[in-house]
Design a protein around this nucleic acid. Structure first.
Length: 142
DNA sequence: GCCAACGTTGGC
DNA sequence: GCCAACGTTGGC
């Protein structure tokens, strides 16, 4: 099992949209590195749900319920399909009791090497098991 | 192949 | 609203 972090702007698609919907097709990723990360996701993998821009931080936990498949929103567009864009399906698991803010993550030396910090613009990234566990602890879930 | 210009993301 | 980081585009 692997661990990941995905970002979303809460005004566009926030945690509450996700839980109301109960399931999300994670589309719109248009970056090669992020796409490669999506491709590596397997059903059952655990995913930190991160709000960017306004009150940046990890707000919830999700899981992969379907691994990568071609992005249906560009299925009929040859100009796009050549890039091999993919999506995964995610389901919410739970909200963190306490959101873990970006400033908390930055202040924690053990999290200083997270992709979140090092590559601030990447929207889908792997998380190490120890980092994952620590974030759940900071979120009062362990 | 290099690099400047430009657009987007995301933190503050 | 501003700016830094960085990915993409296009001229040469």
């Amino acid at each position: 099992m692997n661990f990941w972090l995905v970002k979303s702007e809460p005004d566009t698609y926030g945690w509450h949209h996700f839980t109301e919907q109960g399931r999300a097709v994670w589309d719109g990723v248009r970056n090669y590195q992020a796409r490669n990360n999506l491709r590596a996701m397997q059903p059952g993998d655990q995913v930190l749900f991160y709000h960017s821009v306004t009150k940046p931080g990890v707000v919830g936990l999700a899981k992969v319920v379907r691994g990568a498949y071609p992005d249906p929103t560009v299925a009929d567009d040859p100009a796009q399909t050549k890039f091999g864009w993919v999506v995964v399906d995610l389901e919410p698991v739970m909200a963190l009791s306490k959101p873990v803010t970006l400033s908390q993550i930055k202040a924690e030396p053990l999290l200083a090497n997270m992709g979140l910090i090092k590559q601030s613009r990447l929207s889908v990234m792997p998380v190490r098991p120890d980092e994952f566990e620590l974030i759940l602890k900071l979120g009062d879930e362990l």
